[in-house]
């Protein structure tokens, strides 16, 4: 088993994204560092547009994540509804 991760800058938008990730990935491990937040999840992480929209209270385009993103690991799969990182294929 390997972990995938995403790291985001700490700001208002990413606070909502992080809330959404934690809601959709119960195994997520949060690691807060100065000015950044890193989230690890075993094997697979899913980021859902709908969950983020509930948090931010407006329509959200998943590609907005690029603006707040610092780094990630795992294979990426991107659609308009979900952004997933995984090692299992």
């Amino acid at each position: 088993m390997s972990k995938v991760f995403i790291a985001l800058q700490t700001n208002e938008a990413s606070r909502c994204i992080v809330q959404a990730i934690l809601a959709d990935n119960p195994d997520a491990i949060v690691n807060r560092q100065p000015a950044m937040i890193k989230i690890d999840v075993p094997d697979r992480m899913v980021i859902r547009r709908e969950t983020i929209e509930e948090e931010v209270g407006r329509p959200f385009d998943l590609q907005e994540i690029h603006v707040h993103l610092i780094s990630l690991s795992g294979h990426v799969d991107e659609s308009e509804d979900e952004f997933t990182l995984s090692w299992a294929r």
């Binding site: 560092q33 000015a35 690029h66």
Partner: peptide
Amino acid sequence: FMPFISGAAYNGDLGAMTFGFSAQSDEA
């Protein structure tokens, strides 16, 4: 770009923090 730039932020350098994280966002 993660521990060193986060370290720059920790040392009060918003300038380095900003270009560092902004660059790393493309790195993904």
